[in-house]
Design a binder for these strands. Structure first.
Lengths: 120, 120
DNA sequence: AACCGATATGTTCAACGGTGCATAACGGAC
DNA sequence: GTCCGTTATGCACCGTTGAACATATCGGTT
């Protein structure tokens, strides 16, 4: 029985950033387009687009730089702030998860895993 | 802009324990009944009952000891394991949250809070 | 036996988030 | 100007979740 955690950053005027959007940004950085990134992650473009929109609303800053038209049809790449954010979030979430695991072992590890006795 | 976290414990065969159920258990310990605890927390009895059921399923052990009938109509109290779990969860979640805050300051504190410039 | 209040459980309805479909807009290449 | 692939955006559908309502059951008191 393992613990699980979800991390969020909420903007003051709505909007949210979390693990999902971070993964999406990484995929965009790798693929160069929102559509391809969404396909790679098995998500719909519609939702991916909305997620980015909400994330940018949360920070009040652009995370990606999008362009329409052209021979390629269009493209999307991360802004410098977007790249910085992804890297910082990776460190943040990794460290938070490690601390959580540690706290779990310290306080709940002994309590749980103790078989399935029944008390009445 | 502050970070936020949610913690879960998932049982192998379904069932979940989290902050919500823990609050509910505390309220039950204080009030002596599921119904009164639910009312105190502004939740419906139906959901409270189901939450407890799922939490007990997650651990495979009883968290509360319920009784029906009698002059009082019935009552519910925590099992020793239930009390132990609530106390351990408090320490666990508190420590995890503290570690998360610390990680946030270290890795994201400088990046965020930096005003709302726009980059394009 | 009647009463009362809490547990036990089913059912129905509203809200919400995700998925998918449809379509418009864009702009470089040809 | 046509074509193509991507961004941009609306809408309709659906599964999950929670809220609210409706009973049924239990058992000590009276």
């Amino acid at each position: 029985m393992r613990p699980r955690m979800k991390l969020y950053l909420d903007g003051p005027g709505g909007g949210t950033f979390g693990e999902g959007v971070c993964r999406l940004l990484e995929a965009i950085a790798a693929e160069g387009s929102i559509r391809e990134a969404a396909r790679l992650l098995g998500r719909g473009y519609r939702k991916a687009w909305g997620d980015i929109d909400r994330a940018e609303e949360a920070f009040g800053r652009r995370l990606v730089s999008k362009s329409r038209g052209g021979s390629s049809g269009g493209a999307t790449e991360l802004t410098p702030f977007g790249r910085e954010l992804v890297a910082a979030w990776e460190r943040f979430s990794g460290e938070a998860a490690a601390g959580m695991e540690e706290a779990f072992e310290r306080h709940l590890g002994a309590i749980i895993e103790g078989g399935n006795r029944d008390e009445r």
